[in-house]
Design a protein around this nucleic acid. Sequence first.
DNA 1: TTGAAAGCGCTAACAA
DNA 2: TTGTTAGCGCTTTCAA
Lengths: 334, 334
Amino acid sequence: MSTIKDVAAAANVSVATVSRVLNNNGYVNEDTRKRVVQAISKLNYIPNEVARSLFSKQSKTIALIVPDIKNPFFPEVARAIEDLMSSQEYTLILCNSDEKIEKEIMYLNAMKQKYVDGIIIVTSTLTPKHIEKSDIPIVALDRTISMDIPSVSVDNFEGGRQAVQYLKSIGCKKIAHIRGPHTIINADERFKGYIDEVKNESWFSDDLVVNGNHQVLETTKVTKELLMKHSDIDGIFAGNDYMAVGVLKAAEQLGIRIPEDLSVIGFDGIQLCQLTSPELTTMAQPIYELGYRAAELLLEMIEGKPISKLHYQFQVKLMNGQSTKVLGVTNDEK
Amino acid sequence: MSTIKDVAAAANVSVATVSRVLNNNGYVNEDTRKRVVQAISKLNYIPNEVARSLFSKQSKTIALIVPDIKNPFFPEVARAIEDLMSSQEYTLILCNSDEKIEKEIMYLNAMKQKYVDGIIIVTSTLTPKHIEKSDIPIVALDRTISMDIPSVSVDNFEGGRQAVQYLKSIGCKKIAHIRGPHTIINADERFKGYIDEVKNESWFSDDLVVNGNHQVLETTKVTKELLMKHSDIDGIFAGNDYMAVGVLKAAEQLGIRIPEDLSVIGFDGIQLCQLTSPELTTMAQPIYELGYRAAELLLEMIEGKPISKLHYQFQVKLMNGQSTKVLGVTNDEK
DNA sequence: TTGAAAGCGCTAACAA
DNA sequence: TTGTTAGCGCTTTCAA
């Protein structure tokens, strides 16, 4: 690998001049510029980013810390982030925290050490205290951390409400909820949205809510128990799409027809929804947009632009599949 | 952020001494070591990786270049790689090439520029020429590039054969194949495995092979056409799990029962297989292992160890779902 | 056992 | 318009 020195020697100028043409700043005579450009291409020279970073204290690199890239929600945000970042010549480091605070802190330190220019993180456990002392720009994605830390997420409470409202609107008379882990704030919000919508219903009782733990198998198990106990449940709001699949499986095993006997709605809108049969009705998040916006926000922070808005909250949108019945239309007509 | 200088000053030693205790090499008196260690923890000092990289020409960073992280095969390999790498204090850069050679080359250059220590790449288009001149360690994952470039993959040909053999073994009498894109070597290998197994069958004809292009919708479309043309097809080998889902949908739309009328087998063994109903039978790759092994191989190369074996080829394994019939067992008994 | 100093490749004062 | 040089933070000779 040739260095700026080699180029300077080849073009018979000083390294400063080469640097000038490289960065396109400062005066440089048209002829010398040409000589330099020639030398560069002749030597196949590319500037060493590490040396640049050492000087500039910027690495043109950002980190994305997610619980687990295998969770299909995250590849899509990762893709969105990488799309924007690579277009700006930034590079993306991927970290998996498994929702463990030690790992999050470990990565935070490692990233600081590498001079990454910014971090996008999905976390339920980190508090502002862990973050504030690192002066590096951070954006919270999917879940907010605090009022001070910029975030991009959806309105999970409202999404939960709307899911239930939709089930009501198509005529469901007893609606259960399979919720996600208590440790994850979004699961709580969705749960609260459900509660808000059903708490005054005569049919409502606490045991219409069970915990599926964001797992398919676990959900199938608890849903079967639930449906055997309450045979008159005709609508289920699952806290995410995985759990909705678990519900589908439970219904199948019990010989309950979907959507004729039971309407199921999920949350998230991951690709999976189109792949099941029946296809899943879900409250879809604009997943790619979330990632993209988080990246845009982070970029603004990195560039030191004034941040007009700290918190971006997107709305979820009903995505109609075949797992919810259509009011006034029998199955034959569909 | 404090630097090695600050530590040196605080401990009243030279930076060289601090460096010695940091890296645990060279003689350093026990007392001075203690003073240094104290200073380090007092100042909350962490060494600057960028400066280290500049000197050592190593970045403790590797890159993973995949076509698209949204393809569910890749998050799992990414996870495996990151697991091993982070345990060795390496960091993972993620790149999406969209199977485009320009992007691959662009990333290759960008990574060289960043002094990444190694690269794991999934590519169908890159040739040794693109790679050889970059002296940086490279491992080809999922698809081989050439004999000279280390690789980790599965035996796609044999996997294709075995898929067809299995369909035969459960009694299928006319087996079709939905193949993947011609541009992807693995799709070709699987196709060849299919051909090898059926070419001498009396029922075989060329038009039993159609291209699903690795897409669900496209597959549903071509499969419906196929099944309408050949109503006696009783087995389909889909070139990957996505296309197998497409087949499931086609069958459903045509009122064909799976597995009673038609047995379907996929390839890859992504998580999706357990989420459909019926659950998919597939030739499963050891996806996590593939990623992990590629990472191990790369690490050995980075550390300059002698590489005893350049090419690792894993076997795929039949993973039984409900999309293939069970010989001699009627559906009622199951 | 320790320190001084050169150098990794680059940028940006400052001088010329 | 160009060159000289200091310095980014670290590691490693070389000398003491």
